[in-house]
């Protein structure tokens, strides 16, 4: 006998509801997993092309105040940078090493000649400057010669020397002095700084520096709408520069306090030193926004600027 149950419909409905809510719960769980995975993948891809950087110091003035958080686009092969771009680079501040050489009796060795070498494993390599730049050669004959001054001081430029240990070997003593047989060890410890500055001129562009006036790029004066301070305080050595194929002239937005390409010791920034371009300022709110496309020179013709 068939028995009619008044709650059958309700029961069916309840069963449907339970099934549906179970399906929904499963769907939610799936979505959460999918979301977590996509966040992880997204972050991985993001960090492959971008990186975050915190700016410190007063060199960039109000453009990038202390503690600014920036989004940096990592460089791609063959990438070039435009005037106005803020770039992140690793600058090795190469200061010359000055050695005062004395003999065993404590007397200075004046007008003596030296070669510079390093030991790589069991191989000895001598430092030489060639047309293509600095090189390490295996014979003394073509090596660069460093001569001591009247005070017995040898000055060695470290632009092409990596941080590490090196030796000087005396190859020629001055008249009346015996050749120093012991090599003279010294170390190159140049500080490496990661900095953010604005590109003013790229490859092939002309830069004119003066201790009394603002910098000129291709004959045009730089714009001071976004800068503070003045170049006179930095007192750069007056000179003309034509940027080489892979070099950039960089300058901070605080013209009085920024130490940048205007300094002779600082020099320009090479392609290899660039770690990326600042694309966006995330924090603080005062500088939130796009960082690219800044007009760096005063609009006008080259002739007008020259006049």
């Amino acid at each position: 006998m068939e028995i009619y149950h008044p709650r059958d419909e309700e029961l069916l409905r309840e069963m449907k509801r339970v099934r549906r809510s179970d399906r929904r719960r499963r769907l939610c769980r799936g979505l959460i997993i999918l979301l977590t995975l996509s966040i992880a993948v997204g972050l991985f891809v993001f960090l492959r092309y971008y990186q975050l950087v915190v700016a410190h110091g007063t060199g960039m003035g109000d453009t990038l105040p202390e503690g600014s958080l920036l989004l940096i686009r990592k460089p791609e092969a063959g990438q070039t940078y435009q005037a106005g771009d803020v770039i992140l680079y690793e600058k090795r501040l190469a200061k010359p090493v000055e050695l005062t050489i004395l003999n065993s009796k404590g007397k200075t060795r004046r007008y003596c000649r030296y070669v510079l070498y390093r030991d790589v494993g069991t191989t000895r390599q001598y430092y030489a400057t060639t047309e293509g730049g600095a090189a390490w050669i295996s014979t003394v004959s073509g090596a660069d010669i460093f001569e001591s001054t009247e005070e017995g001081t040898v000055s060695i430029g470290t632009e092409n020397l990596k941080n590490g240990e090196y030796w000087l070997k005396e190859v020629e003593a001055s008249y009346g002095q015996a050749l120093l047989t012991d090599p003279i060890p010294f170390a190159v410890v140049n500080p490496v700084k990661t900095q953010l500055k604005r590109v003013l001129a790229g490859p092939g562009e002309r830069v004119v520096l003066s201790p009394y006036a603002e910098t000129r790029v291709n004959g045009l004066l730089i714009s001071t709408d976004y800068t503070s301070g003045r170049t006179e305080d930095a007192a750069p050595e007056g000179r003309r520069l034509i940027m080489a194929r892979d070099r950039y002239f960089v300058q901070g937005d605080q013209l009085s306090l920024s130490v940048d390409s205007r300094e002779t010791d600082y020099s320009t920034v090479s392609d290899g030193e660039i770690l990326g371009r600042a694309e966006f300022a995330l924090w603080p709110l005062q500088c939130f926004g796009n960082l690219t496309g800044r007009q760096t020179v005063v609009a006008g013709t080259e002739t007008e600027a020259a006049e």
């Binding site: 915190v54 110091g57 007063t58 060199g59 130490v259």
Partner: peptide, 10 residues
């Protein structure tokens, strides 16, 4: 002031 003029990575 140049001493502090640098960028750091989080």
């Amino acid at each position: 002031l140049a001493e502090n003029d640098q960028a750091t990575f989080p």
